[in-house]
Design a protein around this nucleic acid. Structure first.
Lengths: 336, 336
DNA sequence: GTGAAAGCGCTAACAA
DNA sequence: TTGTTAGCGCTTTCAC
């Protein structure tokens, strides 16, 4: 591992000239440039970026805090992030946090310890909460699931409007007993989607029935258990709106195991439009989110923050789209 | 962002004492230690790890090259990696490469530029191939999909034996026309699994029929297209063995769309045992791999390499397990 | 256009 | 036990 000094010796120039040749080639004479470049080649020189970053106090690395890296929705967001970061000359450090706040704080420290220039947080939690440095003094952007009141820039979906649309779709099909399998209690996503569901019911005068509510945690397992619980109610639903596709797929699985026909006997709706949503049977009616655009927007805003440019607007809302597939249909005639 | 100097000033000691208090607290007097620690607290001091790493020439960061982060199999490997790395005091930098060799080389450079201490490569490719530094001089471990002849340590499954077992399972059910949807042509995984499939057929004297072979790329889309192509053959198969669960799920989807009953009319088998394998309908017969153990073993070997300990053995093989679920059954009687 | 030299924040050898 | 000091590899003035 040869150093810049070795290259300088080989080329018969000073280390400053080597550095200049590499950083600002147009400022050295062509003859020197050639000498230096062939010395670089000969020595197999690779600059020690630890030293470069240390010296320039910039790493050009960005940290991304991902709750669940295996989730195909997040995978698409990440893909958007990587593309956008790369085109701006930044590297991406992916951190799989499983929503563990200690892990998030630890990785966020990559920024406070200057191993990275900024953070993209995909969950509604401030990983710098216990840090001594003042809020919002460290470059961070909060996307997808965002904090309610935060000094950090945010990018989100209008979850309330999206859930309202999905519920309206079910109502339009003729459903009156529409259940909801919710996400984690503390998630703003859950609250907003639930609010949208209620909005839609209220708008058409369907009385809210809390026996049609079921807790979940966005996993297929919780959808599986939730479907069973809902169907065993005294007055079971004719449609189940799950706050995530993974839960919807779990619910679908239980219903089919239990001998129910979907959507003839009961409709299922999801949220996210993950890849398997179109590969399950029946394919899933869901809400599509512009996942890659989340990533692109997050990077754009974070880089602006890091490079000291003004951010306008500070909070962005991205568009959603209702995707109607096979899992939703009118309720059985006997039940309308 | 206060520096060690600021803390030293506040505590009325030298910077060396501050450094000692933080690194080797037992070597400073309790009184000084208290003074320093409260100064650290007061200043909100966080050591500049860029400087620490630069100075000590060690980052305690490890790079993991992941072909597809959204794949739940890799997600489990990563989970094993993270746990094992954390317990040894190393951080993990996840890199989603999509199998792009340029991207892999770029991230591998985090090591040759000393931003990380070692690499775990989950694909059969040497990201240092074009590097000037000699092969195997940089700490790297190759796991899951491994290079054939390589100076780097490897950890893999006995893919050939696993595929043979799966094929034997299908043969035992009575199948004679067993198709295979293969993975990417260049992957050693594909070659080994195909060899195992042939081994099993040969062992029971079933003539090999290359019209029962179909190319794929591990995605659901290629499984979907592959199932259609195979069923439209002059002599269609009674069972399809897919080299990945994602392809099996795609195949399942096409068959159901086309009105085939699985497994009554045609059996489907996968490979990997991803999460959705037990959530699709019918649930998928597949080969389970000890994903977390791959991660654990990779870290153990990489850390040994970095810390200059001897590695024994250099190449490890982890155990697989045939998981029989609902998607495989005897062929229709008319066809036996 | 090029070189000499300072210094980024920290650790570790050596001295006191 | 603590302080002084050199120096990790590089970039960037400031002279020349």
């Amino acid at each position: 591992m040869s150093s810049i000094r070795e290259v300088a010796r080989l080329a018969g120039v000073s280390v400053a000239t080597v550095s200049r040749t590499l950083k600002t080639p147009d400022v050295v004479s062509p003859a020197t440039r050639d000498k230096v470049l062939s010395a670089v080649e000969q020595a197999g020189y690779r600059p020690n970026l630890m030293a470069v970053q240390f010296r320039s106090q910039r790493t050009r690395n960005l940290v991304v805090l991902v709750p669940k890296i295996a989730n195909t929705f997040y995978a698409r967001v990440i893909s958007g992030i990587q593309l956008a970061a790369q085109s701006r000359g930044y590297g991406v450090l992916l951190c799989n946090t499983q929503g563990d706040e200690a892990v998030e704080a630890q990785y966020a420290h990559l920024v406070s310890t200057r191993q990275a220039d900024g953070v993209i947080q995909l969950r509604a939690y401030n990983p710098f909460r216990d840090d001594r440095v003042g809020a919002a003094s460290l470059p961070m952007v909060n996307a997808c699931e965002v904090l309610d009141a935060t000094p950090y820039p945010t990018i989100k979906l209008d979850n309330r409007a999206a859930a309202r649309e999905m519920t309206e779709h079910l109502v339009a099909l003729g459903h009156r007993r529409i259940a909801m399998i919710k996400g984690p209690r503390r998630s703003p996503l859950t609250r907003d989607r639930f609010d949208g569901y209620r909005d839609a019911l209220e708008a058409v005068g369907i009385a809210f029935d809390d026996t049609l509510l079921c807790p979940g945690d966005f996993t297929p397992q919780s959808g599986y258990a939730g479907a069973r619980a809902l169907v065993e109610r005294a007055k079971p639903p004719t449609a189940i709106f799950c706050e995530s596709d993974e839960m919807a797929i779990g619910a679908l699985q239980w219903l089919k195991r239990a001998g129910y026909r979907v959507p003839e006997e009961i409709s299922i709706a999801g949220f996210d439009d993950i890849e398997f949503a179109s590969y399950c049977d029946p394919s899933l009616t869901t809400i599509a989110q512009p996942a890659e655009a989340f990533g692109e927007a997050a990077i754009e805003m974070l880089v602006a923050l890091i490079e000291g440019r003004k951010l306008e607007p500070l909070h962005r809302v991205l568009p959603h789209r209702l995707v109607i597939r096979e899992s939703t249909a009118p309720p059985p005639i006997s039940l309308t």
